[in-house]
């Protein structure tokens, strides 16, 4: 079992210090992930706090045989961020002029530059055409939906969906 898995197990047994250690170890990076997706620091902080509380409440459900501990924690965080993004979009429609594409582009470029050049993911993403790679990165990094990607790429929704699927198939082949 990894250290994180042990901490989650301790959380399940009611050990608050274990949750704090998990927060000390991962909280900063989690806040970074949430900020990229939600853009507002207050929302990002809420998302990380919600995620930590959910980790605490669901710790007993975590099964180390079914996946890595950090994967489990980040999945909870990312799903929380996506829910907040989708709810926010429903409640306050973003005016087109509010979409800062330069900022988004910068975030994606930074993520791309920082992605370890020796990693298989980087090598395999490099094999995709620019548009498809960008679409896959903006869904994972920015939390964009198919519709949001289509809007920014000024492409029909159906085409974006099939580009992404083709890209994902290529990635899968390349990474297997």
């Amino acid at each position: 079992m990894t250290d994180h898995a042990r901490l989650i197990k301790a959380c399940a047994a009611g050990d608050r210090a274990a949750l704090k250690r998990l927060m000390d170890a991962e909280g900063g990076r989690m806040l970074g992930v949430a900020t990229r997706m939600l853009r507002r620091s207050d929302l990002a902080e809420d998302a990380v706090q919600d995620a930590m509380v959910l980790v605490w409440r669901r710790a007993a459900q975590y099964d180390p045989d079914r996946g890595s501990a950090s994967g489990w924690v980040y999945t909870i965080l990312r799903n929380r961020c996506l829910t907040m993004l989708r709810n926010e979009a429903r409640e306050t429609p973003t005016a087109p002029e509010m979409i800062d594409e330069t900022l988004e582009s910068g975030v994606l470029d930074t993520a791309w530059d920082r992605l370890d050049t020796a990693s298989d993911l980087k090598r395999c993403l490099e094999g995709l055409d620019d548009g498809t790679r960008r679409a896959i990165l903006s869904s994972y990094v920015l939390g964009h939906s198919h519709g949001e990607i289509a809007g920014r790429m000024k492409a029909p929704l159906g085409s974006v969906k099939s580009w992404v699927r083709r890209g994902l198939s290529k990635l899968r082949e390349c990474l297997s």
Partner: peptide, 8 residues
């Protein structure tokens, strides 16, 4: 997951 590690 390596993309999570690229966040600040």
């Amino acid at each position: 997951a390596p993309l999570d590690a690229t966040a600040d």
